[in-house]
């Protein structure tokens, strides 16, 4: 099985600021980490390879320093890594990002399965996975919580929904996005760490993936961020309740009554 895992480098903190001029995230000064959801995609890919053979390729689009998450993927046990990095990719929205990633997947060739995280914790869109599937005209399974069976022609997976789950048979080639419950990610081995220092990570430019530059970056993105602002503040005062359990319960009941909950 040939598996590509799409991974993204995201800012570590949850209080990142946006530059009011450029409307872009100010990434300077924030520690960058591997998107938490992508660790589950990597783990799933490695487990599938170890069980059924084949190879795992980690793919990321981002600035040169995004290489760090690809090295982290190598240290966990993926076979190779590719970085899409070029000014032309900068400012891409989910349409343009999924276009670039799909071009790279097509260039790699012979891919059976693409794994993504459920969503990236910076943009929180969950749109890139299904976007890649649409660009490639492949089938998709999102919010995958378990892989039940792997056959030659496809996989049987459980998709998580708000109200339960469903079980579906998805033929290869396919794109899947995974949620946290699917596995427990491993930690890097010493051997892996050493390998990650040595490996050569190729950087692919738009020409290398046969991408139309008009469809990349800010100019290739249909959406525009026109304004960013802090969310409306919460009421600053906290009502403190102390006393016997009964007094506390009665005070709480009062609050719930005020909101017509009881």
């Amino acid at each position: 099985m040939k598996i590509v895992v799409c991974i993204k480098q995201v800012p570590a903190t949850n209080d990142a600021k946006i530059d009011p001029e450029t409307k872009r995230i100010i990434r300077e000064g924030l520690k960058a980490i591997l998107n938490p959801f992508d660790t589950y995609a990597l783990e799933e890919a490695i487990q599938l390879r170890d069980q059924f053979g084949g190879e795992v390729i980690a793919l990321s689009m981002g600035p040169p320093k995004a290489e760090a998450v690809l090295r982290e993927a190598i240290s966990l046990g993926v076979d190779s890594a590719i970085l899409l990095s070029d000014r032309a990719y900068g400012g891409s929205d989910t349409w343009a990002t999924s276009y670039a990633l799909s071009r790279a997947i097509d260039t790699i060739g012979g891919v059976d399965l693409v794994l993504c995280g459920k969503q990236a914790v910076d943009g929180d869109t969950a749109q890139v996975g299904p976007g890649i599937a649409a660009h490639l005209d492949w089938m998709q399974a999102t919010y995958v919580m378990a892989v039940d069976e792997v056959q030659d022609a496809g996989m049987t997976v459980k998709r998580m929904h708000e109200d339960g789950y469903d079980v579906c048979e998805v033929p290869f080639p396919a794109v899947m996005t995974v949620v946290k419950g699917i596995n427990t990610p491993r930690v890097p081995t010493l051997k892996g760490r050493l390998a990650s220092l040595k490996i050569d990570i190729p950087v692919w430019k738009p020409a290398d993936i046969g991408a139309d530059v008009e469809r990349l970056g800010l100019d290739g993105s249909p959406t525009r961020v026109v304004k960013t602002q802090p969310p409306p503040p919460r009421s600053s005062s906290t009502k403190r309740i102390e006393g016997s359990p009964e007094e506390c319960a009665n005070a709480l009941l009062h609050e719930l009554r005020l909101r017509s909950i009881v």
Partner: peptide, 23 residues
């Protein structure tokens, strides 16, 4: 913006060359 909506509409947006704002 449910698990179903967030699976379906990104696919439609790409095919129709449209932007999509999530959630």
């Amino acid at each position: 913006a449910t698990t179903r909506g967030r699976a379906l509409i990104p696919r439609v947006a790409v095919i129709t060359n449209c932007g999509l704002t999530a959630d």
